[in-house]
């Protein structure tokens, strides 16, 4: 039986800007994550993936931004939580690993102290057993000579090792949800595979749900159960991983898949890029934000932004599927 862990409904994220009030970064985002499930969040730079992730933990600057909508974690709307209550969630029930392992660890604190801090903050260890528990966690994430590494500093470790430390830190409190924002982007390929394997292994052991944010479709195909494709701050397609790769529907998703090398490609090994760039936030006032880059765009696309259409378990935000699907 699947149990819903996180349910985001109608989330809007906007930032204050100097001139025209606010700029909307994420629009009307709704999705859910089940316990133990891996959901991939895909899209180009600037499509709102990272902002979404940071907002789930309320880590974006609260003076200059607004998060609207509900973010339910195990049935409680954490968007209504006080900052103090939110702190008890961070690192404990929801934890996060970031893209840059080289800069994500505090350079002046020892590894042991940094991991021990999470345990200490969420009262899972006291002064006496903290080091012992830290070493235990380090061993679990496959760190060799864990006993001596606790007394080392981040600059003494390689990128891959540092990302393992980040994972150790994130998994220290057995979180319900792990948000991984481009966890392997800064690593080389062999290390990438190791890190992904490690995440999978820990997920199976603790039944942790993972929200995996990446622009790397290879990583998605390996890790994700379900995929959400974002463009210009909204979901444009959502499907389970097999369906999405076999039968992508949104022209943007198709474009993304075509721009990745594939052995069985019909394009004689040639990659087809998506022309143009993601428009700047606030540029598009009406219509489908992808229309300027879309080969199939027609009149309706300029007039009205399409809603999500549902067909079987696949959701697509495109007028081309108006007939086939039911409006979600």
């Amino acid at each position: 039986m699947t149990i819903e862990l996180l349910k985001v409904e109608n989330m809007n994220i906007s930032f204050k800007d100097d001139e025209s009030g606010t700029t909307s970064a994420v629009k009307d985002l709704s999705f859910y994550i089940n316990e133990g499930e891996t959901v991939g969040l895909v899209g180009e730079s600037g499509c709102g993936k990272s902002v979404t992730a940071l907002s789930l933990m309320r880590l974006i600057e609260k003076n200059s931004s607004f998060i609207e909508g509900t973010i339910e974690l195990e049935g409680e709307d954490i968007n209504l939580f006080s900052e103090k209550k939110m702190r008890s969630i961070r690192g404990n029930k929801i934890s996060m690993i970031f893209q840059e392992p080289m800069t994500s660890l505090n350079p002046v604190h020892k590894i042991g102290k940094q991991i021990g801090e999470v345990l200490h903050l969420h009262a899972l260890a006291n002064k006496i057993n903290c080091k012992e528990k830290t070493i235990e966690i380090l061993k679990k994430v496959g760190i060799p000579r864990a006993e001596s590494i606790v007394d080392e500093y981040p600059h003494q470790l390689s990128g891959g090792m540092r990302q393992r430390i980040m994972i150790a830190m994130a998994m220290a409190c057995n979180p319900k949800l792990l948000i991984a924002d481009e966890p392997t982007t800064a690593l080389d390929v062999t290390i990438q595979a190791q890190i992904l394997d490690l995440m999978k292994m820990l997920q199976e052991e603790y039944n942790t749900a993972i929200l995996l944010i990446t622009h790397d479709l290879g990583v998605i195909s390996e890790m994700a159960d379900r995929v959400i494709v974002m463009y210009y701050g909204q979901i444009v397609e959502e499907a389970d991983v097999r369906t999405l790769f076999k039968n992508p529907k949104h022209p943007y998703t198709i474009g993304l898949l075509n721009s990745v090398p594939n052995i069985d490609s019909e394009n004689e090994g040639r990659l087809i890029p998506i022309e143009g760039n993601v428009p700047n936030l606030g540029m598009i006032k009406s219509g489908c934000p992808f229309r300027s880059r879309c080969q199939h765009a027609y009149v309706k696309c300029h007039e009205k932004n399409p809603p999500l259409f549902k067909r079987d378990s696949q959701f697509v935000r495109c007028w081309l599927y108006e007939e086939e699907g039911v409006q979600a």
Binding site: R87, R90, G91, N92, T103, L105, N106, E117, V118, M166
Partner: peptide, 22 residues
């Protein structure tokens, strides 16, 4: 502005800890 301060926040550290310890 550094990444490691964001990491500390993501661990659940409060303002005092962020400022004086990190």
């Amino acid at each position: 502005k550094q990444d490691y301060i964001r990491t500390a926040k993501a661990k659940g550290a409060g303002l005092f800890r962020l400022v004086f310890m990190h």
